[in-house]
Design a protein around this nucleic acid. Sequence first.
DNA 1: TTGTAAGCGTTATCAA
DNA 2: TTGATAACGCTTACAA
Lengths: 341, 341
Amino acid sequence: MDDGDGTRSRKVTLKDVAQLAGVSVATASKALNGRANVHPDTRRRVVETAERLAFTPNTLAQNLLSGQSGTVGLVTNDLEGRFSIPILMGAEDAFGAGKTSIFLCDAREDPIRESYHLQALLGRRVDGLIIVGSRTDPRPPVPDVPVPVVYVYAPSENPADLSFVPDNVGAGRQAAEHLITLGRRRIAHIAGDPTYAAARDRVQGVDEAMAAAGLELVDGHAAHGTWSESWGRAATRTVLDRSPDVDAIVCGSDQIARGVLDTLRDLGRDVPRDVSVVSFDNWEILATGARPQLTSVDMSFERLGRRAAQAIFDAMDGKTASGVHTEPCRLVVRGSSLEGA
Amino acid sequence: MDDGDGTRSRKVTLKDVAQLAGVSVATASKALNGRANVHPDTRRRVVETAERLAFTPNTLAQNLLSGQSGTVGLVTNDLEGRFSIPILMGAEDAFGAGKTSIFLCDAREDPIRESYHLQALLGRRVDGLIIVGSRTDPRPPVPDVPVPVVYVYAPSENPADLSFVPDNVGAGRQAAEHLITLGRRRIAHIAGDPTYAAARDRVQGVDEAMAAAGLELVDGHAAHGTWSESWGRAATRTVLDRSPDVDAIVCGSDQIARGVLDTLRDLGRDVPRDVSVVSFDNWEILATGARPQLTSVDMSFERLGRRAAQAIFDAMDGKTASGVHTEPCRLVVRGSSLEGA
DNA sequence: TTGTAAGCGTTATCAA
DNA sequence: TTGATAACGCTTACAA
C-alpha cells in the first residue's frame, strides 16, 4: 500500500502505463483491449508495462462512458441471510463472477432503510435491482425506478412487476405424494403460521395431493401454529392423542419437524418405521442434524437467484417480463421417510 | 421505466436539470450541494426542477473526481452467510447506511474465485476490503492491493495485516466461569473439531477457568470430536457412562449442545436441574428451539463488522493498524443453565 | 499503425 | 451571484 517513501501510492492509471510504454493513452487503451490495428510489438510492450505496474482499469471511468455500471443491487430483508446468501450465489453464477458485482444491502424490514438503500444504489447507477423478502406474501412495490426490478421470494403486489417465488403449493404436493407413495395412509399435517402465505400454500398442496389420492388427513385438516419447534412438539402430542394410528406427518417447516421428531421419540414412536416425517425448507443445519435426518422440500433459492439475474439481463436487452413466476421446489429424501424402513 | 413512446428514458443528468431551470451546470451543482453564494431564488428553482425530474446525481461521476468510490468489498467464504450477514450488518451500521455501499462476493472457499472477485472489486475502486473466513484459523493474506484490507473471523497469517477475531479463549472462560458460579463442580467438556483453532481456543479458555477455580474437568480433559449433533449425542453417552455424577457440560457449539441435550433427556437427566449445559455460537435457530433453550456464548459478529468498518475508515485517514485484534464474546443465559433451577 | 480530441456526469477554480 | 473551463480515467471516432 506504500510506495516506499511512506505516502500511499497513487493508483496506476492508463496514462501511467502509456507514458512508461512510450505510447499515447489511446494506443495503450487499444492494445490492452485487444483492438485491431495495433502493432504486435507495441501491444506486447504495453501489456508488459501494464502487468509490471499492476494496472487495473478503472471500471468507474469505463462505466461513465458506457452508461452501464456492471453492478446490481440486492436488497434483502431476511435477518439471517438464510435466503439472501443462496440467492446471491445463484445470481453470481448467472451473472458470471467478476463480470457483474452485487451490492448487498440489508433493509431489515424497515421501509425507510430500504428507500435509503435504494437511493444509494440508484446513485451508483446499478443496472438492476433484486428485492428479496422474508416471506412469500406480496409486498408493496418499490417506487418507480429507472432500472429493471425483480422481486424474489416476496412477490410484488403489482402484477405488472416481475417476481420469482418458490412453488409452495407444489412443494406441499410433493411432500404428500412422497408419503403416499411410501404407502402411508394416515397422514397428519402440522402446519406453520397461518398468517404466512407459505404456510397456507403448503397446506393447499398437501390437501390437493391427498384429494387426488382419495385420502383425507387424519383430523380432516392441517393444524396451524407457529414456525417453531415448540409448536411441533405440542402439536404432535395432540395428534397422537387423537389419532394414535397416524403413520406419517407433514411438517410446515424443518423447525416444526424437529419438534415433531423429538416428541415422537419421547412417545416411543420409531421414525420412519412407525411414522414417516417430511418437512419444508431443507435448512441444512436442522435437517441433517436431526435423528433420523429429515426428508425436506428444498426451496431452490439458488435457482431463484439465477432466474432473477437472468431476468435482469433480459430486461437490459429490452425483453421485459412481468407477473409472479413460480419455481419448482425439490424433495430431498433422508432418513425420516426412508422406503422399506 | 418508459418515457411514453416505448423507449427507455435516458437517465436524468445535471445538465437536464440546469437547462430546465435555466442556469448553468455549475450553478445547478452548487445549488443542489448547498454551496454558498447561490441566490435563494435560483437555488429553489434548481432544487424544484431536480425533484420534478427525479434527478439522482451520478455517484460514479462524483467518485471519478474525488478518487473515492464510497464502496467497500466484502469477500466471504462461509456458505450459509451465518457470519457474513451479521458482519455485513455491523459494517453497514458503522459506515452509515447509504453513505458507503457494500459489494458482497462469495468466494466459496475457492482461491481462484476469490482472486477473481478481488480483481473485480479493485477495478470498481473499492475504498477497502473486508475478508471474511469460515474459521478462525489464520489464512494466507490476499495479494498486495492498493486499498486497506481487514480480515474478519479468519485472521491473516501475516502479522502486519489487520485482523479481527472473536475471543474464543475468553468465550471458553466465560462459559466455564458461568457454570462454576452456578455451583457446578463436576464439569465435562464436549468440544468441537480439534483441527479448528476455535475448538482448541475454547478448550483452552475452559481449562483456564477451571484451573483458576482449582477444579478439574471430569475425565481430566475435553473430548474433541466434530461440529455435529451426532457427536454431541455420542459423547454424552460416554461422559455419563464414565462419570454418572457429572453436573454440567460445556459444549463446543450449539450443534453439539443440541445432541447433548437430546441424549441427556434420553438418559433421564433433567436440564438444568441435574446437568447444566452451556455452548458457543448462540445460533438463534438452534439455541432458542432447544428444550430447554440453550445458554450460549455469542461471537458478536456485528461488533466484528463494526470494528472492521471503523478500521477501514481509519486506514483511509492514514491511521493504519495491524495485528490480530481479539473482540470479546457475550454470554447469553437461557434455560439450560438457569440459576436455582 | 499511431496520436489527437471529444465526451461520459460531476465538481472546483476562477474569471466575469 | 453566475458561468466557462478544466479535470477525473477511460474509450472511440477521426486525423495524421
